[in-house]
């Protein structure tokens, strides 16, 4: 959705480069297993799509002659080091196996939970949020919220299926969206442009 929007409108105002870069870090550190394990064709293709689309979005915002001019550089000022460092420490201390790939995988789970924060802060600073940008954040949050249902279903149907690190991080991630969801639905109901209160 976001890539299509940027490609079609040649405009990325209201889009946080910081969040996109955090997602790129999340995907690369999590999908290292592309190199040594195979789950399914669907799984492999989706991993490549996630890595590729975020890399493409970053390229557009940073380097595209027209798109880069529309980037809200002065507004997108979230200090991502305050997210990356704690997640890295958490990944080093709370994991299931003290190996490089496992620590990076766990780090990516923690980082993903908070990766949307720079985008939410930028949305709050944006007066009139572009409909497509609002939809992108809604779909991203909705996608993760559906995982909650997926986990409940798998817990009930697959004996021994449990993964506490993923469950707790995923629940926090979805909780971070709650406020946004509220205002998204309200603007939808009233047929108004989305704007978050500051």
């Amino acid at each position: 959705v976001l890539l299509l929007k940027i490609h079609a409108t040649k405009n990325c105002s209201g889009v946080s480069l910081k969040t996109q870069e955090l997602y790129a870090i999340v995907f690369v550190t999590r999908y290292l297993d592309l190199l040594f394990s195979f789950i399914s064709l669907y799984n492999t293709i989706m991993k490549l799509i996630f890595i590729g689309s975020s890399a493409c979005i970053i390229w557009y915002i940073r380097f595209h002659r027209v798109v880069s001019q529309t980037y809200d550089r002065e507004q997108d000022t979230f200090r991502v080091i305050f997210l990356i460092l704690p997640c890295l420490l958490l990944g080093i201390f709370i994991n299931h196996e003290f190996t490089i790939t496992e620590i990076l995988w766990t780090f990516s789970i923690y980082l993903e939970a908070v990766a949307i924060l720079p985008q939410l802060v930028l949305l709050q600073r944006t007066k009139n949020v572009d409909t497509l940008t609002g939809n992108y954040v809604f779909l991203l949050g909705g996608y993760r919220a559906l995982y909650l249902l997926n986990w409940i279903y798998r817990f009930l149907t697959e004996p021994g299926y449990r993964q506490w690190i993923v469950w707790i991080s995923g629940t926090i991630q979805t909780a971070i969206y709650c406020d946004f969801f509220y205002y998204y639905f309200q603007s939808w109901r009233r047929n108004e442009k989305l704007s978050l209160p500051s």
Binding site: S37, I39, W105, N150, R162, Q163, V166
Partner: peptide, 10 residues
């Protein structure tokens, strides 16, 4: 705590 090793979720 132990948990499943196969990482089949995205």
């Amino acid at each position: 705590f132990r948990e499943e090793k196969e990482k089949d979720e995205l």
